[in-house]
């Protein structure tokens, strides 16, 4: 109160003296909404989410380090055939066992993962660039350009991905780049759609009207306001595309249309292991399979965390 002239604020709160009469003094005890069940559930959910993100990040880091370090540091040939030790079950000298011509499966899995990641990253990026450019152009230009481009996207989308991919690969000799091209050319469609929708929604914002009135050219508006607005979405699409591309590459290879069969690609390895699986030898299928599944899940987990950051609960929750 007024007489406690030198008391700094918050040290002692004077009892509130409402006009309606005296109110029992309430000590300032701060309470978090942690008492509530929602908050507890929320905290638990946040905890799980954080754990998932951290696990994914560690896994992705391990995967990237492995595929970079192992081929550089381990002077072993993943193609080395040793017919004397074919189809050995996992042991200390061959932790993942050996395949039907005696090649070490751990080494081949690592090399396969390297190829898969390469295809995934390159194809994912290429698909995203194509999709973003096409989508942004369609959205920013509008009119007939938009209609033509989007009909084209519809036509492409009406053919199943894999079928179209097979068609593209079949036009070339087997190898890495046809696979990359096939995956990239079949995966830009969804990104184009997302980016176009985003650009269309941004284009009708009053801040674009303000930019027009401020004398900005169409190009400047696209570069300064529209593209920065869609880039986070496009980046997320690129990361989400990587696991997809990895699976696609594996599928193509499994069908025998991907990389040359001797190449250590995960899809090739699963394909080659089919015969031994029937004979009860599980390791040539299991380990390459896990090498497809775990890294892709980890990347998807990271992308999920990114997505949550993109759509944070708005700061307007502070109602400032």
């Amino acid at each position: 109160m007024a007489e406690t002239g030198s008391t700094p604020e918050g040290a002692t709160k004077p009892p509130p003296d409402a006009a309606t009469g005296s109110v029992p003094e309430v000590p300032t005890v701060w309470r978090s909404p942690g008492a509530g069940t929602r908050a507890r559930g929320g905290a638990a959910r946040r905890g799980t989410r954080a754990l998932r993100t951290r696990t994914s990040a560690v896994l992705v880091a391990v995967v990237v380090l492995t595929v970079l370090a192992v081929p550089a540091l381990v002077p072993l040939d993943e193609q080395a055939v040793d017919l004397g030790s074919k189809l050995l079950p996992p042991s200390w000298s061959h932790p993942f066992g050996t395949d039907e011509v005696g090649r070490d499966l751990l080494l081949r899995c690592v090399y396969g993962l390297r190829i898969s990641l390469l295809v995934g990253v390159v194809a994912g990026l290429a698909a995203t660039v194509v999709g973003t450019v096409v989508g942004a152009l369609a959205g920013a230009l509008g009119g007939w350009a938009d209609r033509v481009v989007m009909r084209l996207v519809d036509v492409f989308s009406s053919v199943p991905h894999l079928l179209l991919g097979v068609f593209i690969v079949a036009m070339f000799r087997p190898g890495l780049w046809p696979v990359v091209a096939s995956v990239a050319l079949t995966h830009w469609l969804s990104t184009a759609r997302i980016v176009r929708a985003e650009v269309l929604s941004l284009r009708s914002r009053p801040y674009i009207d303000a930019a027009i009135s401020g004398g900005s050219s169409r190009l400047r508006i696209t570069v300064r306001h529209l593209l920065p607005g869609v880039l986070p979405q496009a980046g997320l699409a690129a990361v989400l595309m990587i696991p997809h591309a990895i699976w696609h590459e594996s599928a193509l290879s499994f069908l025998g249309l991907g990389l040359p069969t001797h190449e250590a690609s995960l899809g090739n390895m699963v394909q080659a292991a089919r015969g031994s699986l029937l004979a009860g030898d599980w390791w040539p299928t299991l380990f390459p399979g896990l090498f497809i599944i775990i890294p892709t899940l980890a990347i998807a987990g990271l992308a999920g965390a990114w997505r949550e950051r993109l759509n944070p609960r708005r700061r307007s929750e502070l109602m400032l």
């Binding site: 914002r205 009053p206 801040y207 009207d209 303000a210 930019a211 009135s213 300064r224 306001h225 920065p228 607005g229 307007s316």
Partner: peptide
């Protein structure tokens, strides 16, 4: 010079 009703909508958030 144009001023709109909702400043949040009229300002590029970035």
């Amino acid at each position: 010079g144009v001023v709109f009703q909702q400043p949040r909508q009229a300002a590029d958030p970035r």
